[in-house]
Simulated assay, not measured.
Amino acid sequence: MKLMRTEDAVGQVLCHDITQIIKGVTKDAVFRKGHIITEEDIPVLLSVGKDHIYIWENNENMLHENDAAKILYDMCANKHMTPSEIKEGKIELIAECDGLLKVDTERLNAVNALGEMMIACRHGNFPVKKGDKIAGTRIIPLVIEKEKMERAKKAAGEKPIFELIPFKKMKAAIVNTGNEVFYGRIKDTFTPVIIEKLKEYGAEVVGHVVSDDNHEHITAAIQKFLDEGVDMVLCTGGMSVDPDDRTPLAIKNTGAEIVTYGAPVLPGAMFLLSYYGEKKRPVIGLPGCVMYAKRTIFDLVLPRIVAGEILKKADIDTLGEGGLCLNCPVCTFPNCGFGK
């Protein structure tokens, strides 16, 4: 790469895109990398502030920004992702399906720490939709040492930094608990909320029953759905520590392995997660806040469940930082700090 006066650059080859920015009108390249400069191009280049221009010189030890950007993309990209057009050393990763984004934070940070290159992405463990932008990468200088890109590949490791796990077509059952609902004293307003949240991820409700507060009856209802082969059972109501709230005991009595009863998230502290049998089918106890709060612990966990991830207690324990929903007048989740 060589710097020379623009007026002297006729016949030379541009080694980078030349961008024109007019506020509110355009931000795009007026010339692309590889363009051979003509006499007519000189006034245009001067009009975008290019009194001097970088022209291409071959150097076996250096890589052009676009060639290096391809290497960055290969470090990041996995199945169900597609690249954008390479432009000014930038490539974006686009989701090819709805799914859960997983990010290897340690390796992401290792590449960004090298300097002269960057990878910016969405938060991991959050859902993305087909067509969403997952990440953007860029080489900072116009050219970069091949050796530095080799170090970047070593820092990134053999596996891609990102993974997009498609959501599974899960069949769910809902067990409503509470004498007040069972005897018709109040209307069941919990079930419609759960159905709508499951629809966000393509999960289908194939069974629903209302039980009284007898823990044996609740256990029997859960067990019936499990025996019928549902992929997940969601229990609503009876999740607090009041003596007559028996849902946690009922879930335990199915033989399900309790991962956690309680979560460092508000709303959602009384959340219960368990898995049943060798297939690790989730049996979940949802606290009352899921019924009336816009976003809760359930919104943080559900996409991971529907992606087929088997969560451990440590996964729930780490939700404390960012686990406070601010109940904003206009909810922008997941484009906010909740769960991050």
Results as ranks from 00 to 15, higher is better:
N109L: 11
I134V: 13
M170A: 09
P127C: 05
L93K: 01
C121I: 03
V103T: 11
I161R: 03
D74M: 11
F167G: 11
A110T: 02
G131R: 08
I144G: 04
D188L: 07
V128A: 15
G184I: 11
F162A: 07
P83F: 11
G115Y: 07
K87V: 12
M75Y: 02
G124Q: 09
K171Y: 08
M118G: 07
G157M: 00
K87H: 14
K168T: 05
V181P: 01
D74W: 07
L93M: 15
T105N: 13
N176A: 15
V181Q: 04
P83N: 14
Y183S: 10
K159R: 05
K129H: 13
I165S: 07
D188W: 04
M149F: 01
I140R: 04
H80I: 05
I161Q: 05
K130P: 06
I161H: 08
R151V: 01
S84V: 08
A110Q: 06
F162S: 10
G157L: 00
F190I: 06
L101H: 12
K169H: 14
K171N: 15
Y183G: 03
I186K: 11
K154W: 00
N125I: 00
I161V: 15
I139T: 05
P83V: 14
K148Y: 04
D188R: 05
N125R: 15
D74S: 15
D132S: 11
F182H: 10
N112F: 01
E106H: 06
F167K: 04
G124H: 03
I134R: 02
H80E: 15
E145P: 08
A172D: 04
N125D: 14
K70N: 09
G89T: 06
I139L: 03
K187V: 15
R122H: 11
V175M: 08
G178H: 06
N109Y: 03
A113P: 00
V111R: 09
F162Q: 12
F190E: 08
N112Y: 00
I71K: 12
K169V: 06
V175I: 13
T105I: 13
P160T: 09
C76M: 13
A152W: 01
A113V: 01
I174W: 00
